[in-house]
Simulated assay, not measured.
Amino acid sequence: MPPVFRFAPSPNGFLHLGHAYSALLNFDRARETGGRLLLRIEDIDATRCRPEYETAIYEDLAWLGIAWERPVRRQSEHPADYRAALEKLSALGLVYPAFESRAEIAKLVAAREADGPWPRDPDGAPLYPGDAKSLSADERSQLIASGAPYALRLDMAAACRGAAGLSWNELGEGPDGERGSVPARPEVWGDVILARKETPTSYHLSVIVDDALQGVSEIVRGQDLFHATSVHRLLQVLLGLPEPTYRHHRLIRDEAGRKLSKSSRSTGLRALRAAGIAPARVRQLVGLD
């Protein structure tokens, strides 16, 4: 079987040089290995994703000379796939609803920090500080029936008890030079969100479901997602999904050393194209021959 790669942008802004680097690496790896390249549109966030950004993704990638297989998978068209995975985790007793708002969570964290620093995940966000797991089934049902907003969270402690000794095969390099067999530490993320009342899935859940359904065998993505791989490996094991290999790559940064964002107009692919920059020059700008 030929290896399968994917580039999976979100249409919530225009692509920049960082996206170009990741897309080109996937494209090059597919050509080098005789593999397949898929394009996935991660448009589950209906409030931020817009059709014009999706159209721009296709235009920018084609301008770079990148070819991908059709049809393109769009997350918004597959809510049943994520619901099935969520139901399986729920059946294992690993999912619970939490009803605190973001403001309420911030207050809980502030109260906890009166006694010392509250733990934070690798992205710097505080771990969930609430006690929603202690609510009875009747209390949860009443809150849901009342229309209260909620987030569905993974009971991380329970999930880790059923999946000890996790690791992944790293073909690239982590932020601290990690390579080869990397131990997974999903517990440092706390009770991550898997879905919300108004959103059928989170990134953590949708990415592992999509990769499995599409047969992705080598995941090439930025080092900013290196630590999240611990959560992804845990969910893959819990759901009985295949284990891909991972190749995390360096990030393209601006002159101040910051990771590029979609608001970085000077490094946006559309702006570079409008300025007459050639696709070959883009490869040079991101450090590819």
Rank of each mutant, 00 (worst) to 15 (best):
I57L: 15
I57A: 09
I57R: 05
E59S: 15
E59Y: 15
D60R: 09
D60P: 03
L61A: 06
W63L: 04
W63I: 04
L64P: 07
L64Y: 08
L64Q: 11
L64F: 10
G65H: 13
G65V: 14
I66A: 11
A67P: 09
A67N: 13
A67V: 10
A67R: 15
A67S: 14
W68V: 02
W68T: 02
E69F: 06
E69Q: 08
E69Y: 02
R70P: 08
V72Y: 12
V72Q: 09
R73N: 15
R73I: 14
R74E: 15
R74H: 15
R74N: 12
Q75L: 03
S76F: 09
S76L: 10
E77V: 13
H78Q: 10
H78C: 07
P79M: 04
P79E: 00
D81F: 13
D81C: 11
D81P: 07
D81V: 11
Y82I: 11
Y82R: 04
Y82L: 04
Y82E: 01
R83L: 10
R83Y: 02
A84H: 08
A84N: 05
A84E: 12
A84G: 09
A84W: 07
A85E: 03
A85D: 00
L86Y: 03
L86G: 06
E87M: 00
E87D: 11
E87S: 00
K88V: 05
K88M: 07
K88I: 07
K88W: 06
K88Q: 15
L89H: 04
S90W: 12
S90H: 05
A91V: 11
L92S: 02
G93F: 07
G93D: 01
L94A: 01
L94P: 03
Y96M: 05
Y96D: 01
Y96N: 00
Y96F: 14
Y96G: 02
P97S: 00
P97K: 05
A98T: 09
F99R: 05
F99D: 06
F99C: 07
E100V: 05
E100M: 06
S101Q: 03
S101Y: 02
S101W: 04
